[in-house]
């Protein structure tokens, strides 16, 4: 075969050898830090430290109440396992000399009502508000939960999974709680996970932990035995995939 016949054939084969789709297996990564100024509200039974009963309700009042949303962007704010994260809608931010204050009211059958004032300031984007509620007529002193022991640092990177959208990944910015797997104790606050990342010194080597987040009115859990200094964990977050 002459050179003139071979060359175009060779060229064509070479060009066609690079036909993998550029976007193959590429996922769209979406952050959840839409609401920047947030407060994690954790309502517990004052006498036991356990999560508030399921029928516990929360109300938001004050001049800026209409600008308060649940962390997933929902206007419907309710407690799940005694927890909810609320925050200012993204177009409203506190000023240096003009913080934004709201009032939170807690009501639960058989318990005294409780209320707390929450203030959003420019210097504090995250805050945890613990609200213990006492049973009506109870004289039991509130339980004091000791701070968890401190260990070496462990880095956790969480990826939110959308069960119905495998082409999308979530980078959650949420408050995360933990407890030892199998323990009957209440979940304790681990920290704020910023864009999926958290470094903590509250995890003991060779222990297995349950991690819990509350987002969009649902709780999501994952567990992991701690044997090294960093882990990548995947957690289902269907409430973050509704777009």
């Amino acid at each position: 075969m002459s050179t003139a016949r071979i060359t175009p054939l060779v060229l064509m084969l070479l060009i066609l050898s690079a036909c993998k789709k550029p976007t193959e297996n590429i996922k769209i990564v979406v952050d959840t830090d839409v609401i920047k100024y947030t407060a994690m509200i954790n309502v517990t039974d004052a006498s036991t430290g356990a999560s508030a009963p399921a029928n516990t309700t929360i109300t938001i009042s004050g001049d800026q109440a209409s600008n308060i949303y649940e962390l997933s962007g929902k206007k419907d704010i309710r407690l799940t396992s005694g927890m909810v994260t609320i925050g200012l809608q993204p177009n409203v931010v506190p000023a240096e000399n003009n913080p934004i204050t709201i009032n939170v009211g807690i009501a639960s059958s058989g318990y005294n009502t409780a209320s707390k004032q929450i203030t959003f300031t420019t210097s504090q984007k995250q805050q945890v508000i613990n609200i213990p509620i006492t049973k009506t007529g109870s004289t039991t002193p509130p339980i004091v939960t000791p701070p968890p022991p401190v260990y070496n640092n462990t880095s956790l990177t969480f990826t939110g999974r959308c069960p119905s959208r495998t082409d999308i990944e979530i980078r959650p910015s949420v408050y995360i709680y933990f407890k030892k797997t199998g323990s009957l104790d209440a979940f304790q606050y681990l920290g704020y996970m910023d864009k999926g990342n958290i470094t903590t010194n509250l995890l003991q080597l060779n222990e297995t932990y349950d991690f819990q987040i509350v987002y969009g009115g649902d709780t999501y859990k994952v567990n992991q035995k701690i044997e090294q200094t960093s882990y990548n964990l995947t957690i289902d977050m269907p409430a973050a995939c509704n777009f």
């Binding site: 060009i15 050898s17 690079a18 789709k21 976007t23 769209i28 979406v30 839409v34 864009k195 999926g196």
Partner: peptide
């Protein structure tokens, strides 16, 4: 914005595109 985290997809994109070297 909310899509800032997509830089994590660079290694996959690099792998997909690595054979795109023939410029006819």
């Amino acid at each position: 914005g909310l899509l800032e985290g997509n830089s994590s997809q660079t290694p996959q994109f690099q792998s997909n595109i690595k054979d795109y070297r023939w410029l006819p």
